[in-house]
Nucleic acid binder design. Structure first.
Lengths: 198, 198
DNA sequence: TGAAAAACGGAGGGCGCCTCCGTATCTGTA
DNA sequence: TACAGATACGGAGGCGCCCTCCGTTTTTCA
């Protein structure tokens, strides 16, 4: 008697192992530094080394380079999306857009890896794993765009995806001397083009 | 006696060896195909294999990936630049610009590697080798821009380099289903933004 | 025709990708 | 506290690519 459980299995969720959590955290920290220094094609083995973890462990936690990227930059993406949502309510549509774009450039200035991450996300659809980042941002942007269009201030044939891609593309000259000014200027031109004539 | 030469050396240019010329040609042909299929990071060993040539030979002819790229796409660049020069004389400035941008997109559609090549050129300055392509295009574009600005049809704070970079960036969503339409639309928006307000 | 110059080609050392599986560690139960 | 099963670890190993180096082959020129 007292043998209460017996088949309790299969539906019982164990809590994640402590070492697993610890390693995941270490990997994220290491990846942040390595990507930030070495760009999007930095060596994953270097990440594992820096984390003090076997390469197998890295791959178990993050099956693809993309997955690791996304995990590293998810927080940034969330913030960016949150800002868009806030601006959609608090500012005039066109201003909201300009402010958000400015914030984006600002962010890229400090977290260069993010641009690479999002660009990967924006590329080929095969990267199913990226859905999160890209969706999150386009959805948030959509709020701003819809209002601007409804207010008759912006042309209606540009989707949030278009805008995001354009933004990513235009930002791609980062890594040059005066890039930030240049990119800001280019984005300004683009926004001017978005505004309804007159 | 009869020993006429003796120190004739050092200033005498021999004609290039026939096999060298032949191999160079083969490599260019192979590279064109391989880059076009595999994108900018295609394997150089694959190029050598396809050319039926040793890897050492490839490296002797083209010491860097960039050098090979440039050699492959130099002809295209020249054509593009030539078109810009012609358009600068034959068309209304803004039209000339639109036509040239359209031609660019068209070209990228068939020679995808070119986009990668030019993008590399537009990146970090270290790539001395790219100077040619980038200079050639910006110079040619400058003709169109100058006229448009002089005619009071275009804002004056955008340089040819800016425009080229923007073009490259905006084109970067190629490799997706409907990219050509999208890119054309985005470029259209950008040009609208370039035009002097009303 | 033969010697010197030029070019060839691929082996080899290094590195990164990713998989696979024997071993070590942790968790829940009694 | 002890132990069995579940879970995670780690790195060796196979593969491909990068690039260099040098012994061998081919071509040129006199």
């Amino acid at each position: 008697m007292a043998v209460r459980s017996a088949r309790t299995r299969a539906e019982v969720e164990r809590k994640p192992r402590a070492d697993s959590l610890r390693n995941r955290e270490r990997l994220l920290k290491a990846a942040t530094r390595v990507f930030s220094a070495g760009g999007p094609e930095a060596s994953l083995e270097a990440v594992a080394r820096r984390a003090g973890v076997g390469i197998g462990t890295l791959y178990r936690h993050f099956p693809t380079r993309e997955a690791l990227f996304e995990a590293v930059y998810r927080r940034e993406v969330d913030e960016l999306a949150g800002l868009a949502e806030r601006l959609a309510h608090e500012a005039e549509p066109i201003d909201a857009l300009r402010q958000w774009l400015g914030a984006f450039v600002q962010l890229v200035a400090t977290k260069k890896g993010m641009l690479a991450a999002l660009s990967l996300a924006a590329q080929a659809p095969p990267s199913e794993l990226y859905a999160y980042s890209f969706d999150r941002l386009t959805t948030a942007l959509d709020g701003i765009l819809k209002r601007a269009i409804a207010a008759g201030q912006m042309r209606s044939d540009i989707t949030p995806e278009d805008l995001l891609r354009a933004l990513l593309g235009l930002s791609y000259s980062y890594e040059r001397p005066d890039w930030q000014a240049t990119v800001t200027r280019l984005i300004g031109v683009f926004v001017d083009g978005l505004m309804v004539k007159r």
